[in-house]
């Protein structure tokens, strides 16, 4: 195997890693603020892609930037709706089984809704994030470069938001201690709405970014959703930097695993890592003791 292939694998691994990192961030935000593991998150990613591609670009013929902004707005609103209608009743239930199943079924509903609205056939958005850059023998797709750049921007933006805005600081308070936050005059319910909206917008960013890799279909984000969970566990559950590190590790390891394992086992890698970490080091690489 030559160096050029290795570099290409590394870059595509890094890009996938950033996607997993974003997935990790998106559900960790919800986990921290509501205590719910959002099993419908992969369907929100898909919904973001459908809104952008199916409705605004192909359906209404808007320009890409306008379509992105509109997708963000709609997804944010959907996030608020989900937080109010579903997460709030679920998070006060005594058994966590209901919370898990509630978000699972929500995912099904979203998936079915997409299939009904946009039809069962997968479609591509021609010209969206296409093309390659060649550096010597190495060929890197534009999509991978843009994925890395946008993900970095999201990570930095989110850090600034969480650390320097009043809303962001309140979100961190709620994540640490809901009761204390409520006593300090923070509206926890409203905070959960904002967090879920932010999470839903990140979902749509992921969905829009992966269109060139998977096309738009009802199953486009299935494996990404689960691998995002692996990312969180490997890096340290409930800890944002952990999700980022975990995501990048999974992305690179599963791409390089192709060099030693048959290619079909690529998808198994992240789940084996997930189980190993849960058994050996449940706190993850960066996690503090629970």
């Amino acid at each position: 195997m030559n160096a050029a292939v290795l570099v290409q694998l590394l870059v595509s691994g890094l890009a996938m890693g950033f996607i997993y990192a974003l997935v990790g961030i998106e559900y960790t935000l919800v986990w921290n603020s509501t205590g719910l593991l959002n099993f419908s998150h992969d369907k929100l990613i898909m919904l973001g892609a459908y809104l952008f591609g199916g409705t605004f670009v192909l359906g209404m013929g808007f320009s890409n930037p306008l379509a992105i902004v509109l997708a963000f707005v709609i997804m944010g609103l959907i996030g608020v709706l989900i937080a109010n209608g579903i997460f709030n009743p679920l998070r006060t239930m005594q058994s966590m089984i209901f919370a898990v199943m509630g978000t699972m079924i929500l995912g099904r509903i979203i998936k079915e809704a997409c299939r009904l609205i946009w039809g069962p056939a997968p479609f591509a958005i021609s010209g969206w994030l296409s093309g390659n850059i060649r550096i010597g023998k190495i060929s890197i797709s534009n999509a991978n470069i843009i994925i890395c750049l946008v993900s970095l921007l999201v990570v930095i933006g989110l850090q600034l938001f969480l650390n320097f805005t009043k809303t962001g600081k309140a979100m961190r308070c709620v994540a640490q201690n809901k009761k204390a936050a409520a006593l300090m005059g923070i509206n926890v319910t409203q905070n959960i709405c904002i967090t879920t909206a932010v999470s839903a917008i990140i979902c749509s960013i992921i969905g829009i970014l992966i269109i060139p890799l998977f096309n738009v279909s009802t199953t486009m984000s299935n494996s990404i959703g689960l691998k995002g969970f692996s990312a969180g566990v490997i890096g340290g559950f409930g800890y944002l930097p952990g999700a980022i590190i975990g995501g990048i590790i999974i992305g690179i390891v599963e791409n390089l695993a192709v060099m030693v394992l048959p290619a079909v086992y690529k998808d198994v890698v992240s789940f084996v890592l997930l189980i190993l970490f849960l058994l050996v080091k449940p706190t993850g690489l960066l996690g503090k003791r629970a």
Binding site: V100, Y265, F271
Partner: peptide, 28 residues
């Protein structure tokens, strides 16, 4: 055995991971 070490959502993730590995194994 894992159910002794991990609880709650962690266990649900472990079991999901297990089922996915089984499924991918049979398809490959």
């Amino acid at each position: 055995y894992p159910s002794l070490r991990v609880k709650g959502v962690y266990l649900s993730l472990t079991t999901i991971g297990f089922a996915e590995v089984i499924r991918l194994m049979f398809s490959n």
